[in-house]
Deep mutational scan, measured.
Amino acid sequence: MQAFVKTLTGKTITLEVEPSDTIENVKAKIQDKEGIPPDQQRLIFAGKQLEDGRTLSDYNIQKESTLHLVLR
């Protein structure tokens, strides 16, 4: 499924993900596309910070959801 990641600069990245993907996995995909190390990434969805060990389905993130990427 497709999900979108919006950065603070307003850029939107499109990712191909599965509901079973972990947040860690998603961060690795963002690193592949953008070169941002996962340890600098914080992903926010519905106002919550997403934890590495959880999956997209844990957070009820469905296709075409938009996550927000904040860098630390």
Rank of each mutant, 00 (worst) to 15 (best):
M1F: 15
M1H: 05
Q2D: 06
A3I: 15
F4I: 11
F4K: 07
V5W: 02
K6T: 12
T7W: 11
T7R: 06
L8T: 14
L8S: 15
T9Y: 14
T9G: 13
K11R: 11
K11A: 08
T12D: 04
T12N: 05
T12C: 12
I13A: 02
L15G: 00
L15Q: 00
E16P: 04
E16Q: 13
V17A: 03
V17F: 05
E18F: 14
E18T: 15
P19A: 10
S20Y: 11
D21N: 07
T22P: 05
T22R: 08
I23W: 02
E24P: 02
E24M: 14
N25T: 14
V26G: 00
K27D: 00
K27A: 01
K27R: 05
K27P: 00
A28K: 15
K29R: 07
K29T: 03
I30V: 05
I30A: 01
I30H: 00
D32Y: 10
D32N: 11
E34A: 13
G35D: 05
G35S: 06
G35L: 04
I36D: 02
P37F: 05
P37S: 08
P38S: 14
Q40M: 12
Q40L: 11
Q40R: 13
Q41H: 04
Q41N: 02
Q41L: 06
R42K: 12
R42F: 13
L43P: 00
L43Q: 00
I44C: 12
I44P: 00
F45Y: 14
F45L: 07
A46W: 09
A46G: 12
G47I: 01
G47P: 01
G47F: 05
K48P: 01
Q49T: 15
L50M: 09
L50R: 00
E51Y: 08
E51R: 09
E51Q: 11
G53E: 11
G53I: 07
G53H: 15
T55D: 03
T55Y: 06
L56G: 00
L56R: 00
S57H: 10
D58Q: 08
D58S: 13
D58T: 04
Y59P: 01
Y59I: 04
Y59K: 01
N60I: 06
N60W: 05
N60R: 07
I61T: 04
I61K: 03
I61A: 03
Q62N: 10
K63T: 14
K63L: 08
K63Q: 13
K63H: 15
T66V: 14
T66N: 06
T66Q: 07
L67T: 02
L67H: 02
L67Y: 03
H68G: 05
H68E: 10
V70E: 13
V70Q: 10
L71Q: 08
L71K: 07
R72G: 11
R72K: 14
